[in-house]
Design a protein around this nucleic acid. Structure first.
Length: 887
DNA sequence: GCGATCACG
DNA sequence: ACGTACGTGATCGCG
């Protein structure tokens, strides 16, 4: 291949990003000599992504040579006031160069010049010589180099995601061309490089000015013609700053670099050197990758060969008796309610038994073992395993270790439903991923070759057994053993039962709705076509946009990446201008209900028992909440009357029975009152006030809750919600459709009235910064590496998450405890009532008529007693002959 | 396979 | 000045 592609990497800035991208792993990534290795590791990950994406013929990684450069000669404070590079990072830099060398990649630095100048110079040379050039950096300074033949990639959240800056993209982001971006920077200044620019000029103003005048110089040629304004004064006052800024911001593309393009030719790694380097750094992951690559080119060096015995009807008595076994039940596909069985593996001590024939499990030696509570079972995915065995008529007992749950608690980011992938996160490489063994998409299948499949199955039990102790230790170190033993494991068992129960659905009620909605949709459709003057696909936002904004000429309120936005928010603002808009809104609403709920639910009723069996995902969310899939029963409509009708189809299993619903009142705000220890908010809950009215009274300075108007209450409610989300004046103003200034006043007054809340928010952010994670009342963690991000938006998002996660997550903890306790009570009392659905703060039960009274007594009280907070927990109940009535 | 949209807490 | 609310899943059109 003759393609000439030059890859230029800004070594310092990418290393810096790499370091902070894996900052929370700092202590984990150390080689045996105590050298930190996290930046090296992340840098290598970035290189892999870029090498694959760009497939360069030539590569250079440029480094800064030292503190003094031609820029410091111009302006001595250039890059002054910067924090010193952390020692944990600088110690890695020499090894970074060593790694690059082993990878066959040239490093280069030049006295008096920055890496940027080297890159600019080589990019220029490259383009002149007919190369396509790709530049990778951790900051945006280099984007000024973008041109027809130069694409600048800037790392985004972490280092393996890259944002491509082409001239077009520059124009979109900044409104100016890459070269004009220099002028923009000159006006704005750059706080991180420590030069000032013009007072009060940020990106918006700078972009506008440069779009108008083209350059700093031309701007100053015409500055006298500008209307009198503060901006004009500031521009004139800072002329020298702006001109200096331009010099500092301009990359020198004619630096005296001594390397030639030919020097940069990339021929690939020196595998032996690289292997030695990985060994020195203890990069087992990369070592495994090297081994796998070897597998592709040389003869097959399989993953570790497992020893196993194939079980059949003839040797079922062979597995020995034991107090502890590791068991894996293989089903093909995610939905274990319906998935085909594929086989199983059973590891007892050093022996592993495998088979494709899951019906062997129904034979007494194996069934007896699985149902024997004296035999502890280690598994991967307790709920899936329990459900699969239940389908085989086996009531599994003593599933006491679940690697999936343990790993989710230790670090939910490292978690995966694919065991092979999960264990790699724990440096275990003797198991392939399901993706590798089964394949992807519609080509995926269980391998026909026994040797391959059995090895994979046996490998799974080996991996579970191998990681058990380490995971248990990590749980202990995190003070999470109680969360694991007393909350997650029992919750999994409760959820398995709820999934088995399912909820009864009356298809006739959905069919009626289907017909009604079909008629209404048809009418609306015809009306809209008439109003629009033509037929089009109403479900296509693209086609709808053309009709509304081009044909009917309505004003464009918001744009999306792909075109006009036609969301509810936008359409609501256009309602007055054209009658067709209201009809479209109505069509959208009905159509959503029809396709997602009426048709969607009809499709998933189990014909065998007339019920819907959702699956709860227990190890998915970042906060500890559950999610519900196939179908999602946690978003059944409730806000509109048409939508609510869906709930009439959810019925008790006996005709005279009840659907009983019990939900926590304001659980998140109560958690906030508890964790913040704010006396005023605690007082409001202890007194039993309507919390939103109480907040309104406080922030609007009323003397009693009776004086609160409904508008004031609505606004106070929005503020309360906003607080839980990590409020901003902008978000609140948008939500309430008020000015940003007014929103800010509400927030300020709120903090005044509830001083503990502000303190909580500050503490939440500070704690997250120090510990690297946020934590719930039950010690559930959420890691927040972005809390150290330099990018304002990325960091702000992490800060809001640090505030929200303990609140949302603690509420989730509480609900899980409640579910366990309620189920325990149902069992103790031998009730036939079934817990059937959980919707975050609400539990739904299928209750026989004669148990209603008992349920009313026990459910709210057990929920309220789930944990003891500094404010009371309150649960409200409702019931009726279907879900609609149970409110 | 992804973005836009909209359903829920 | 920066540009935002927190957490989810299903459906549709479109490339």
């Amino acid at each position: 291949m003759n393609k000439k592609k030059l890859l230029l990497i800004d070594g310092n800035s990418v290393a810096f990003r790499a370091f902070f991208a894996m900052y929370q792993q700092l202590d984990k990534f150390k080689n045996p000599e105590g050298l930190h290795t996290n930046a090296l590791y992340a840098f290598k990950n970035m290189l892999d992504v870029v090498l694959k994406q760009e497939d360069p013929s030539h590569i250079l990684v440029a480094f800064d040579a030292g503190k003094t450069t031609f820029r410091t000669a111009m302006y001595k404070d250039y890059k002054g006031g910067r924090d010193k590079t952390p020692a944990e990072l600088s110690e890695q830099l020499p090894y970074l160069r060593e790694m690059l060398k082993d990878m066959g990649i040239k490093s280069y630095e030049l006295a008096n010049y920055e890496a940027d100048d080297i890159i600019g110079t080589m990019a220029k040379k490259g383009v002149e010589a007919g190369y396509e050039v790709a530049v990778v950096s951790g900051d945006k300074d280099l984007t000024q180099l973008a041109s027809d033949h130069v694409t600048v990639y800037v790392t985004k959240s972490g280092v393996t995601k890259l944002e491509a800056f082409t001239p077009d993209h520059m124009k979109e982001v900044n409104g100016v061309t890459p070269t004009e971006f220099i002028d923009m920077k000159a006006l704005m200044g750059d706080p991180s490089d420590n030069y000032p620019g013009v007072a009060k000029v940020g990106p918006k103003t700078a972009s506008k000015l440069i779009q108008e005048y083209g350059s700093v110089e031309n701007l100053y040629n015409h500055v006298d013609e500008m209307k009198k304004s503060k901006l004009k004064e500031n521009l004139i006052a800072s002329k020298d700053n702006a001109l200096l800024g331009k010099k500092l911001a301009t990359i020198n593309c004619d630096s005296p670099v001594e390397v030639t393009l030919d020097d940069l030719s990339y021929e690939g790694s020196n595998i032996d050197d690289l292997r030695r380097f990985y060994e020195k750094m203890n990069f087992r992951r990369f070592l495994a990758d090297l081994a796998q690559k070897g597998e592709l080119t040389e003869n097959k060096t399989e993953v570790k060969k497992q020893d196993y015995v194939v079980l059949s009807a003839d040797n079922l008595d062979q597995p020995p008796k034991a107090a502890e076994v590791t068991f894996y039940l293989a089903m093909f596909g995610d939905n274990y309610h319906l998935a085909d069985f594929a086989g199983f593996a059973l590891k007892i001590g050093g022996e592993t038994f495998v088979s494709r024939d899951v019906f062997l499990l129904q034979e007494s030696p194996l069934k007896g073992m699985l149902e024997d509570s004296a035999v502890q079972k280690n598994v991967f995915d307790l709920k899936r395993t329990t459900y699969g065995l239940y389908r085989l008529g086996i009531k599994a007992e003593s599933l006491t270790f679940d690697l999936l749950l343990a790993s989710y608690l230790v670090d939910n980011e490292k978690n995966s439903n694919d065991l092979g992938e999960l264990v790699q996160g724990y440096d275990y490489y003797d198991l392939k991923t399901d993706l590798e063994v089964y394949g992807k998409g519609k080509n995926a299948k269980i391998p026909a070759d026994d040797a391959v499949f059995f090895n994979h199955l046996a490998g799974k039990t080996a991996a579970i057994a191998a990681l058990k102790d380490s995971l248990l230790k990590q749980l202990k170190d995190h003070e999470q053993d109680d969360l694991y033993d007393s909350i997650e494991l029992p919750t999994a068992r409760v959820l398995a039962k709820m999934e088995m129960n399912g909820i009864k659905v009356q298809p006739s009620r959905l069919k009626e709705l289907e017909n009604d909605f079909a008629v209404r949709l048809k009418e609306l459709e015809e009306k809209i076509y008439k109003e629009a003057g033509e037929e089009f696909n109403l479900n296509s936002p693209k086609q709808l946009g053309v009709i509304l904004f081009e044909k009917l000429g309505l004003p464009v309120i918001k744009k999306t990446k792909t075109g006009y936005s036609t969301s509810v928010e936008v359409l609501n603002q256009l309602k007055e201008q054209s009658p067709v808009v209201s009809d479209i809104l109505e069509y959208r609403q009905i159509s959503k209900i029809q396709s997602t709920y009426v048709k969607g639910l009809l499709d998933v009723i189990d014909e065998r028992d007339g019920r819907i069996h959702t699956r709860y995902l227990q190890t998915l969310t970042a906060t500890g909440r559950l999610s519900s899939v196939d179908p999602n029963l946690q978003n059944i409509p409730t806000r509109t009357e048409e939508g609510k009708q869906i709930r009439k189809a959810f019925v008790p299993s006996s005709p005279d029975g009840y659907i009983y619903s019990c939900d926590y009142s304001q659980i998140e705000l109560r958690v906030l009152a508890h964790v913040s220890a704010d006396p005023n908010m605690q007082e409001a809950f202890k007194t039993g006030y309507d919390i939103h009215a109480h907040t309104a009274m406080k922030i609007f300075h009323l003397s009693s809750v009776d004086e609160v108007t409904s508008l004031q209450r609505r606004r106070a409610k929005a503020v309360n919600f906003g607080i839980v989300y990590g409020i901003s004046d902008y978000g609140l103003s948008k939500n309430l459709d008020i000015s940003r200034k007014q929103a800010k006043e509400f927030i300020d007054e709120y903090f005044e009235q509830y001083p503990g809340i502000q303190a909580y928010m500050d503490r939440a952010v500070k704690d997250a910064r120090e510990k690297g994670y946020a934590e719930t009342i039950m010690h559930r963690r959420r890691y927040l590496p972005d809390i150290h991000a330099k990018n304002f938006n990325v960091r702000s998002f992490a800060e809001r998450t640090a505030i929200n996660s303990p609140i949302q997550g603690s509420a989730a903890d509480i609900m899980k405890i409640a579910m366990i306790n309620v189920q325990k009570k149902l069992d103790e009392l031998g009730l036939k009532t079934k817990m059937v659905v959980q919707v975050h703060d609400e539990l739904i039960f299928d209750v026989p008529a004669d148990e209603l009274e008992t349920i009313q007594k026990i459910v709210p009280s057990v929920m309220q007693a789930a944990v003891k907070l500094d404010v009371p927990l309150v649960a409200d109940a409702g019931w009726g002959h279907d879900w609609y009535e149970a409110k």
